[in-house]
């Protein structure tokens, strides 16, 4: 299933397992190499982005700080992905390709 892509904040191609977070209290759920899916960001999520292989966020813009963290870590980031935290579930396999503007939940 494809999810409509938002704004590309950092480029790249990744396939990995999603970890969905809706509150900073979920930070402990993060696992290394996962694709982090957020509703909105604040600085406390930085440590999760540092472990992630990609970032998807429902809100934010190209210059949102969490996206700069993704840029510094060299991982892809897409923001303004509508209802990402509702459509993606923790454990889903996601294929993300910013060059094709594609976010796919693999079957």
């Amino acid at each position: 299933m494809n999810i409509s892509c938002g704004i590309i904040a950092s480029p790249g191609v990744v396939k990995g397992t999603a970890v969905v977070m809706t509150s900073p209290d979920d930070i402990t759920k993060m696992s290394a190499g996962a694709i982090l899916v957020l509703k909105k960001s604040d600085p406390s999520y930085a440590e999760c982005v540092m472990k992630a292989s990609a970032l998807i966020c429902e809100t934010g813009g190209k210059l949102t700080h969490i996206c700069v963290v993704a840029l510094e870590m060299g991982i892809p980031a897409i923001v303004q992905v509508e209802e990402a935290t509702r459509q993606v579930h923790t454990g889903d396999t996601i294929y993300l390709n910013t060059y094709d503007k594609k976010i796919e939940i693999c079957e």
């Binding site: 600085p43 930085a46 982005v49 540092m50 700080h65 963290v69 510094e72 870590m73 060299g74």
Partner: peptide, 14 residues
């Protein structure tokens, strides 16, 4: 190095 750069962004914002 990327980790240091990343965390300093967030530290600044914090």
């Amino acid at each position: 190095i990327a980790q240091i750069c990343s965390i300093l962004w967030s530290y600044s914002e914090s």
